[in-house]
């Protein structure tokens, strides 16, 4: 995003908001991973403790979700950089 039109008071304000949103995004990511990995990995309710198989599944699922998100993020950033470069060429 382009904040070049912002004065310094606006930038300070915007930075606070962004910081807060990053915190919220992080917490939502956390909740998403818990939900998704629980739903994928836990299907046996004959016991109340996680089995070691379930635990392995949850750990792999979490790690994989991060790697997935990071890869999506990298590709997305590349696309945005390309789009930005294309938009600035004519001017």
């Amino acid at each position: 995003m382009d904040f070049s039109g912002f004065n310094s008071a606006e930038q300070v304000h915007m930075n606070k908001i962004i910081e807060k949103k990053q915190m919220q995004d992080f917490l939502r990511l956390y909740a998403n991973i818990v939900e998704k990995c629980f739903n994928s990995c836990c299907n046996d309710f004959t016991s109340k403790a996680l089995s070691s198989k379930e635990e392995t599944c949850v750990m792999s699922c979490t790690e994989k979700f991060f790697k997935h998100s990071e890869r999506v993020g990298s590709r997305f950033a590349e696309l945005n950089a390309d789009a930005m470069a294309a938009a600035q060429k004519p001017s």
Binding site: T56, C57, V58, S60, C61, T62, K64, F65, K67, H68
Partner: peptide, 14 residues
């Protein structure tokens, strides 16, 4: 994630 990642989690690598 739904299209590309199989929901069997034996390890954490893509």
């Amino acid at each position: 994630h739904a299209k590309c990642i199989a929901p069997r989690y034996t390890d954490g690598e893509l």
